[in-house]
């Protein structure tokens, strides 16, 4: 069973992270509400953190740096989610809609 040993090699983690990133890109392009786009952005951030963790586990001389960077990404992502939700609620109060096609006040 070759498949049972892949938890010990770098490329399996990289492939999973690439899949997460691709899912996030697809969601960002195809979702129509702002909340769906926020979820996709969280997926992209998770893919980036997973890459940092995999490289710091397998390749880096000092794995502390990659883990530190993942912690910082988590903090930034939490701040980003809070700000995005507050903006979203303000937008909903003004427009009564959260579909990104309706937010066209600045369109020329």
């Amino acid at each position: 069973m070759q498949l049972l040993g892949i938890y010990n090699c770098l490329s399996s983690y990289l492939v999973v992270a690439a899949f997460l990133f691709a899912c996030g890109v697809y969601g960002l392009m195809s979702r129509r509400t702002v909340i769906g786009m926020l979820i996709s952005a969280e997926l992209i951030l998770a893919a980036a953190s997973l890459n940092f963790m995999a490289f710091s586990r397998f390749l880096a001389p000092d794995p502390t740096l990659g883990r530190l960077f993942t912690l910082f990404i988590m903090a930034i992502a939490a701040a980003e989610a809070a700000i995005a939700v507050s903006i979203l609620i303000a937008v909903y109060r003004n427009y009564k809609s959260i579909e990104s096609d309706d937010l066209t006040d600045l369109q020329g």
Partner: peptide, 24 residues
């Protein structure tokens, strides 16, 4: 396209491993 590109990049690159000095 992104998935195929990143997967090929991850599988084809000869990653160079350094000895780990700290355990993190």
């Amino acid at each position: 396209l992104f998935f195929a590109g990143f997967t090929m990049l991850a599988l084809a690159t000869p990653w160079q491993q350094f000895p780990q000095e700290q355990e993190g």
